[in-house]
Amino acid sequence: MPVRAEQAIAAFLSKMREGLGERGRPNVASIWYAKRHDDSFLEAPWCDMRVTWAAHHSGNYDAVCFGTDYAYTVAHASAFERRGRWTSGTDGIRPGDVIFFDWNGRGSIGGIDHVGVVEKALAGGRVQTIEGNTSDALQRKVRSPSVITGYGRPDWGRAGGGEITLQKGDSGPLVSALQQDLLKVGQKLPQWGADGDFGDETVAAVKAFQQSSGFTGRDLDGVAGPKTRAALDKALKR
């Protein structure tokens, strides 16, 4: 698998794990979704809103959602099917795939009840998933093929879209790439280097970069959001 795809999957899964155990409504995903569309989504079933939120916040919005916000699982599965990225059942399933369930086991897209993301493919077609709105919480589950309608394979080659925000506590390849970029533009990470963990040293380096880029006030926050990312991309081109 291309490195870019591996990084995209790691980032997507990292955002799905974020907030494991979050319970109730409204929640991070439904508030974000409602702000983009309608307050009615605040208290609505949120399993697919959580997938859309994770895709958007990991830079995989185009790969997972094809530029559309999804709350309705059937519409999301249909979008995968229209693009030739739908597989019925679990053959070939792997981490990062968007998995759709039908509690009545009818096997058709029209019967889909629920959605999650595959974290691990297990033996016998079983999968371990992360799912929002399971007992109104974000949880890890183990699922049998008997309730799996199929899965959508995100178009990792189209990874991009959405807004990635990296901050203290984040880790993984996206953080490592950020740290390498900070070093390229002259910032210092003397103790830990580009280790992939967003700790105090990285916060300080981001703040120093923000200051050198003319950021002031609340923008001097040590968080690598879209504005900081844009400034960093500009600095890298100099």
Partner: peptide, 28 residues
């Protein structure tokens, strides 16, 4: 199920949502 050329609006998505959250909590 949306048609081959149909991408549902957010209002349409909202209208079709059905909450099966309690069922999804059951261990399979």
């Amino acid at each position: 199920v949306p048609g081959p050329q149909e991408d549902l609006s957010q209002a349409e998505q909202l209208r079709h949502l059905t909450d099966t959250g309690a069922r999804s909590a059951e261990a399979t």
